[in-house]
Design a protein around this nucleic acid. Structure first.
Lengths: 365, 365
DNA sequence: TTGTATGCGTTATCAT
DNA sequence: ATGATAACGCATACAA
């Protein structure tokens, strides 16, 4: 072997063969030392370790996974929505995955099924399990995936899939919020909708309708405002609400981004929140407590959704604890001030109770 | 081969061998058909494709990458900070990576070097290139990585590394903001610091100090408030500012999360923004325009940071366009209302200009 | 146009 | 305690 140039070292990668040759032992011995399998004499071990150090040897994960038949990687497929939500989801999943010694292979932004299917195929042999949030049919997953790969579907529409699913209790949360507004005396409650084909949006709307029906309040189609989960749509909805006649006394935006946009829209029309119009959101993103007035919303433990998903596939991989297939993640009503339930704090006057602005939480379900 | 049970299909995965046998051709032919390499008779191709379909065969990415020596995957290593920032970064990187036919393998939350090093090692053979944002020494990367892997360091401290780097112009942005506040007549400008060991935080502070020095304004240590990039720290800083004597006339928080928290803190002490204290942030997260008053801040094109990073490693992989090693991403001053530059909008009175609330942007550098 | 044989870097099986 | 060798699933140089 010719002597290496300084710059060469960057391009020459040592394999287990090189280590074996340098240490004058066999491949098997090197492997044993590195993986702690089988007995090795202390002296031999030292020789091997020295060679490893000298050569800067790092095992090739790809080759290893070919024979061990596991990649220690979990694939995550996400739809194309951005913002707080996904960073939290990935964060939660990464934490749980790392705890179990797994990596995360994320792939986002998939609009159509065809696209998603290709990504699924490309992932075969690169991941041990999958967390899928994209809006794909359950059997599409089966088709694209060559079996044996545990899958957990996040917020998936159909309940009758054989795959594991975890869903946020969107309906229950929306129901709780609507009931809360009804309790405050509101009867004309506008709802800012999400994307028509979005499962979360559909469920939240359903919860709203259920709550109204249960109280014998008619669902007025004129109060159903279009939206798409972006703040821009919320702002437009706010303007619409201001012009509605008779004007709704409350607005329930099906996510916080729209609620915050809506606040700007209402303000733009000179309306005060909550004095003129009560406002509520959904998600409890971190900044919802910093808008003024602080936003009443439904808390969703997003990072927990991610971590539970990861935990589920990991335990499926380990073959332990065959928990029930379908899981529902509860939500929490967070009452702040935008709905008018609390007396709004007066500027320049200390609040009556020290922590009066803090969200009071009520567990649901 | 025994007949498969319906349930079996999920556990039995077909390999290229099975396809070859089913189609009565050789392995090579199947490979040729699937990869479009070499000539194949139409009839043979049809046979193979049929077999593929019937067996539900999906190529094994891991095995393939072993021989082709490329995984078509880019590793992303992130530090442990959460929120808007990373979702944007990953989003940008994923978009650019997908465009070039690459996947993203993300791994977050690495506190110490030791931890990071192990992750780096584990990634060998699973990724073709790396985007590293963790606070890790440049030569640690070299050590843990077995060479040949293109790396781009994000917001890395030392400029003298041989690795590619992309840095946000934190210093320039902070300088611009400080100058802006000075232009508005402020002389006592408090600075809410970030984590002491965070490179972005350090650079932002430096920009602040440079701007003051350039104008012959002394840097008062009493105006340097501790922080850690969280909204909680910002809130505490807000309380501190209110109690300072003499009170600063402006507060520059080194990120938006702290600025927003600071707003709450100032409010808690009955101070108005911008009338009593001007306020400015850094990052221009989406919600900074929705707080009231809308936040004056420095815009950072985060998703572009991600996409450029991905683009850089992709082009390094392709061996094209050896762009210069170190890149600086410019920032933009976004003047809204929290700094008092605009006349605050009067509630219930239409603003004088129709778009008076919109942020006015000024390019920098 | 197609098939055979070799190797990618590793672990696992069986000897020794 | 250690070594030789066969897989793992695929691509490819070479032969036919």
């Amino acid at each position: 072997m010719p002597p290496r140039h300084p710059g060469d070292s960057a391009t020459t990668i040592a394999s287990i063969h090189d280590v074996a040759r340098t240490a004058s032992v066999s491949l098997a011995t090197v492997s044993r030392v590195l993986n702690g399998t089988g007995p090795v004499r202390d002296e031999t071990r030292k020789k091997v370790l020295e060679a490893v150090e000298r050569l800067g040897y790092v095992p090739h994960g790809g080759a290893r996974s070919l024979i061990t038949r596991q990649t220690r990687t979990i694939g995550v497929i996400l739809p194309d929505i951005y913002g707080e939500f996904f960073s939290e989801l990935i964060r939660g999943a990464d934490l749980a995955a790392r705890d179990a010694g797994y990596h995360l292979l994320v792939s986002g932004a998939h609009s159509n099924e065809q696209d998603t299917r290709e990504v699924l195929r490309a992932l075969h042999g690169r991941v041990d399990a999958l967390i899928v949030m994209a809006p794909v049919a359950s059997d599409t997953v089966d088709r694209a995936l060559p079996g044996g790969v545990p899958v957990v579907l996040l917020n998936h529409a159909s309940r009758d899939t054989r795959h594991r699913t975890i869903r946020i209790d969107n309906r229950g949360g929306a129901r709780a919020m609507t009931e809360h507004l009804l309790d405050l005396g509101h009867r004309r409650i506008a709802l800012v909708l999400g994307p028509p084909d979005n499962e979360d949006a559909i469920e939240r709307r359903r919860g709203y309708e259920e709550a109204l029906s249960a109280r014998r309040v008619a669902v007025d189609p004129a109060l159903l405002l279009p939206g798409d989960f972006t703040d821009g749509a919320g702002e437009r909805a706010g303007l619409l609400v201001a012009d509605l006649d008779p004007r709704p006394t409350a607005v329930f935006a099906t996510n916080d981004a729209m609620a915050i946009g809506c606040l700007a829209g209402l303000r733009g029309r000179g309306l005060r929140v909550p004095e003129d119009v009560a406002l509520a959101g959904f998600d409890d993103i971190p900044f919802s407590r910093y808008v003024s007035p602080p936003l009443t919303t439904v808390q969703v433990a997003i990072s927990e959704l991610g971590s539970r998903a990861a935990a589920r596939v990991v335990q499926a991989l380990a073959g332990t604890a065959p928990t029930r297939r379908h899981e529902l993640l509860p939500t929490t009503l967070v009452v702040r001030e935008s709905c008018g339930a609390h007396r709004p704090i007066q500027p320049r006057v200390p609040p009556r109770a020290p922590r009066a602005t803090a969200g009071r939480k009520r567990r649901r379900q």
